Structure formats: structure tokens, C-alpha cells
Simulated assay, not measured.
Amino acid sequence: MPSPQAVLREATDRRLLEEVVTRGRVTRAELAATTGLSKPTVSEAVRRLTEGGLLEATGAQETGRRGRVGTFYELGPAAGWVLAIEVGQSGVRAWSADLAGAVLREHERPAGAEVAAALLSIASEAVTQAGEGILRAVAVSMANPVDPGTHDVIALPDSPFPEGLMSPADTLAGVVAAPVWVDNDVNLAALAEQRAGGAVGVSSFAYVFVGPGLGVGLYLGDRLIRGAHGLAGEIGYLPGAGSGTLAAELAAGIGGPDAPSNDVETALRMLDNGDTETLGCAVARAVASVTAVVDPELVLLGGPVGCHPALLEPVRAALPPSPTRLEYGTLGTLASLHGATYSALEHARAAAVRVMSA
């Protein structure tokens, strides 16, 4: 077990690394001022981070005054990079990003290819293009529920994405040496909206995904709620207005009683043509089921159908009176990929400091 001093040093180093990432380029004096840490503590931490390659000195601060000149620091050459991957019915997409979150390269394999092969191909491509850079973490967004303890994908009846019932960690084991973190796409979309989207500063909100399937990401009390088994938010299995489920009701409203649950293109055409009542009422029932149970401050609509500009007002009109606000998510159909990036970055920064301190 590490000593209390080692734990404190690691926490200090992590805090300063996060501050450099946020500010981009900063002096030790600025770090001391913004964190409230003493100048000697900051100087020692910056020395450790610089010697570990996570930071580098990039020039003198021009103050225009006599006296000691400060030195700017920013992310160093050994900071490494992360890989965020989204696996869904539209294909496999990925971003390689540095530890500040700047996207370095984009990767994509369209739908139709075997999912595991597409995932493996993208990871191999990203590692090859990165050269000698250190891959710190991989985060994979899956269009299926994921066990929060084991990161295994969970099979559910009538899954709209049966091709995604696979183990990303096992698939990538021979290609990436970094830890692989796996989460549900709706959870990651909610994470992204909380970090940099429509739910910034909101402690309790729900993200309702409408697309190939129906699901909810829940943030309650500033915590992402996954449930004991990773099944929190699987509202598509709730009873609908008839004898079927909410997901079946939504699918039937789009294409008839025998329609598949993933008929996104038909739903988008309906909305384009002004046929909004059926979808609006079905989505409103899903939203009402969430607000009645958890009473969030805000509900965001997302997913390829949920983001359609014609859907919001019909859903509002069909909802019973409630103090909960209903808005669109602001990150669009890339929300889960943004969420995977944030997840990878959080794990990568912690791991980079931990390895340096070892």
C-alpha cells in the first residue's frame, strides 16, 4: 500500500496535470494562483511531471517587467494519447486524441462489415498511425448494455443490435496494450452532455436516446447511474400503451405492427414529412415514465431520431404538466463518441501520473 505522502504527491500531480490540460500553456506562478497550492509544492510537482515527460517547458513568459521571468509549461512528448471507439448499427467510428482531448485522427468503418473485424481494423490502424506514442487508455461505446463491474456486453431479448454482443476487450487484446474500458452508448452520451453539452451545471438530468432502440442515461446528484447490473435506463422494455413494450410501440408507430425496432430511416422520413404526432406521443410516454420515477431537472432528447428538429415540440405537447425541462442534447449524434473520449481521458490522465509516480 502506498504511503500517505505518495498518495498526496500523486493527487497533487494529477491536479496540476488537469490544470495544464485545461489552460493549455501555463506558468508555475499561475498554477499556484489557480490551485491555491504553495509555490514550493507546485515547483516540486512540475519538476516531477517534467522529468516524467508529461510536461515540457516551452518558453519564457514575456512580462515586460524586470526581475525573474516565468517559464511556460504544456503537455510533454510522453503524455501519450487515447483511443475512443463507438460501435453501433451505423458502423464503427473512432477518434485518436491527445491527453488534452484534441482529436488527432479520425477512423471509420461503415456498417456491413463484421463488427469484431471492423473494431480490430480500426484499432490496428490507430496504433500504426500513432507510431511510438504511448497509448494510455481505450474507451469503447457499445449499443448494448454493459456490466459496470466486468465491462462485459449483456445480451437482452430482442436486442436491436445483436451483432454487438461481443467482448471488445478480448477482441483488442492482441492489438492494444492499454486498458480497455467499455460502457453503454447512452450512458456515454449522457456523460458527454454533462461534461460539455446541454447538461453542463445540471446535477440531475436524463438523456433519452431515440434511434435503433430506446434507452435512457441517468445523471442523479452529479453521478452517472448504471445500476447494479448495468441495466438502468433500459426503458424500451417497459410496457407500452398496448400489450407490447415501449420499444415495440415506437416501432409499430413508425412502420406498422411488424416493423423492426431499428427502422431509423423510416422514422426520419416521417418527421421530415411533418408526421410527428405518432412519434411525439410514443417518445412522450418514455419521457413521462422517467420523470415520474426520478424527477430530473432536465430531460435531453438524443440519438438519430431524438435529435430531429421536428420532434421536440410534439413531445412537449404530449407530455403531462411537469416542472422538468425538455430540450435537445447539444452534441447530436456524436454524443456517445464524445463520451467515450471523456472516459478514456479520465482514465488515461490518472494512469499516466500513477505510472510516473511508481
Rank of each mutant, 00 (worst) to 15 (best):
P212T: 13
G174I: 05
A344W: 01
D222K: 12
G164R: 03
G230R: 12
V153E: 06
T50F: 02
A94Y: 05
Q89K: 15
N144Q: 15
R316K: 08
L156G: 05
A199N: 03
A196Y: 09
G339E: 06
A143W: 06
P160A: 04
A350Y: 11
A317F: 01
A247F: 08
S43C: 02
T34F: 11
R354T: 15
A232L: 02
A100F: 07
I85M: 12
A32S: 15
G227Y: 01
H151Y: 12
Q194L: 12
E125M: 11
L120M: 02
D98N: 12
A32P: 13
P257T: 07
E327Y: 10
Q5K: 15
E86N: 12
I235S: 10
G59H: 15
A352C: 08
V180W: 07
S159N: 13
G306V: 07
P323M: 04
L191D: 04
N187M: 08
Y73M: 10
R226S: 03
L37E: 15
L220I: 14
L345V: 02
A340W: 06
Q89G: 15
T276P: 06
G227D: 03
G306F: 07
F161K: 06
L334S: 12
A118C: 07
D152C: 10
L49K: 04
T278S: 11
A60I: 14
H347P: 09
S261R: 08
L301V: 00
L188N: 04
A259H: 10
G233H: 08
R15Y: 11
E19F: 09
R105Q: 15
G131W: 02
A335K: 05
H229W: 11
G242T: 04
C307D: 07
P314Y: 04
V176D: 08
V176Q: 07
G53N: 07
E18S: 09
V210R: 00
V140I: 11
L165M: 13
G280H: 02
E327Q: 13
S322K: 02
E19P: 05
G242D: 12
V180Y: 09
L279V: 00
A282K: 01
E10Q: 14
A60W: 14
V146M: 05
Q129K: 14
R48H: 13
V175D: 01
T128E: 14
H107R: 10
L311I: 02
A192Q: 08
G52C: 05
E51T: 13
S343M: 15
R15M: 15
A252M: 09
E265V: 10
G201M: 02
P314V: 00
D263G: 01
P309W: 04
D170P: 05
A6N: 15
E10F: 04
E108W: 15
D13F: 04
G112C: 06
T278Q: 10
T171F: 12
V87I: 11
P320L: 05
V21I: 11
L268D: 00
S3D: 12
A126F: 03
D222E: 14
P160K: 05
R223V: 14
S336P: 09
D185V: 09
T27Y: 07
G112V: 10
G280E: 01
L172I: 10
V202F: 02
S343Y: 12
R285M: 11
P314I: 01
G306N: 06
A102F: 14
L331M: 06
D158T: 12
A286F: 08
Y207S: 00
R65N: 10
V175N: 00
D158F: 13
